[in-house]
Design a protein around this nucleic acid. Structure first.
Lengths: 231, 231
DNA sequence: GTCTATATGTTGATAGAC
DNA sequence: GTCTATCAACATATAGAC
């Protein structure tokens, strides 16, 4: 068996490795230019394979894209749920702090950032690529996560309606997606501070840990804010 | 002169009107599927013209897209600045309330929503289409707006660094873009409330005025929140 | 299981008739 | 100024060789 495999590996490339090279290339290219903006050719060329190989392994361009998204997002959501589990177990039924909830939600994403993967952009594509491509995948990957985190929010803010919590949770997701999409890099350009100190200040404030800290504070406060009437 | 124009209008379609039909069609289609996902043919077909006409009037697909974005966004930014002018004049040098600042920023956008235009999605594309297509346009259209609104924020929150304000302003933009991109429609699906009352509650909370009110409250509170150390 | 060759369609842009 | 006809380049997918 081992030798049969070796013989095959001599004649053909390892299937598993080819698939991963395809996923890596797809991740990089599709993250940058989206589904419609990236040709299957470009992906397979970057992966050092052929179009037929991609279609053989994944069936179609769409399926390759979905596999690319799922590969990165599934483990992040797993870690989100693990963190939430740990928090709830430690709290023993008591409501969690909003800050803790959102650290559990955002932390796994920011942890990946250091790993230099295009995971951020990939995840952001979930929200900008055509719905028919990603909506079922989104429900699949996020169904339980959203339910569990909304439950935690409902316990932390028992006087809010579930609709209101859902709406504001979407605001929080918006903050996250926007930062993941790389729009932070625009920020320094737009805010012409004193040029000399600007770069240093930018590096400091835009460091991952700092951004996460600010985002958690921003979102938690935003959720706590009363609806505010006509003013 | 008038008869010459009439004679031309008889032989050929009115140039101005053709351009607007092209812009309308481009707005609708490009908003839904993005630049790469929309063929020039699809746009011209929807506009009842030909590919050559579009290239004649706009030079290229890229230029048509930029013109489409600019047509909608420029007047919104004009109204934003007018609102801010009015607020600052009324305040006579005193710092503005954060809520007022963001009503000035978000109001013109939500006002357009009622007009049933694809303006939201179009604006959202600014943040998901390839940078080389939109980044110079973004600077052109938003340069002054961002500067003026950041100045107002800096006066309202004088103890914050400009970098921090810029970062959090991006969070606010993220909320806005995410809602514009239509992600609110996902919300009801994800939050399985009591099925019967869910629809009514959703309509209520997701009405434009309600969303705007919640968003302003969310963002203002988020900006006021202190950075929050290690927790 | 993987690749070569190819089928079949669509893309954006333009040259030239009217 | 606008349209018809046409372009080369590119798209995805597949049939069949190895």
């Amino acid at each position: 068996m081992a030798e049969a495999q070796l013989a095959r590996a001599g004649r053909h490339r390892d299937s598993r490795e080819t698939q991963e090279r395809l996923l890596d290339a797809a991740e990089r290219l599709l993250a940058e230019r989206g589904f419609a903006g990236t040709s299957l050719r470009a992906v397979t060329q970057a992966a050092g394979t052929s179009v037929s190989a991609a279609n053989y392994h994944f069936g179609s361009k769409e399926e390759l894209w979905r596999a690319t998204l799922a590969r990165r997002i599934a483990p992040i959501n797993r870690r989100r749920l693990e963190s939430l589990d740990a928090l709830e177990q430690a709290a023993g039924g008591a409501p969690l702090a909003l800050e803790a909830i959102f650290e559990a939600y955002l932390g796994p994403l920011f942890a990946e950032r250091a790993a230099r993967h295009a995971v951020h952009f990939v995840a952001a594509r979930l929200y900008s690529d055509p719905p028919e491509l990603v909506s079922t995948l989104k429900l699949e990957l996020f169904g339980e996560v959203i339910r569990r985190f909304l439950d935690a929010l409902a316990r932390a803010l028992p006087d809010r309606s579930r609709m209101e919590l859902g709406l504001r949770f979407q605001f929080a997701v918006g903050c996250m997606v926007h930062v993941m999409s790389g729009n932070l890099e625009d920020a320094p350009l737009l805010m012409e501070s004193v040029p000399e100190s600007a770069a240093a200040a930018a590096d400091d404030v835009l460091a991952d840990a700092s951004v996460l800290r600010h985002m958690v504070a921003f979102i938690a406060a935003g959720l706590r804010a009363p609806a505010g009437d006509a003013r």
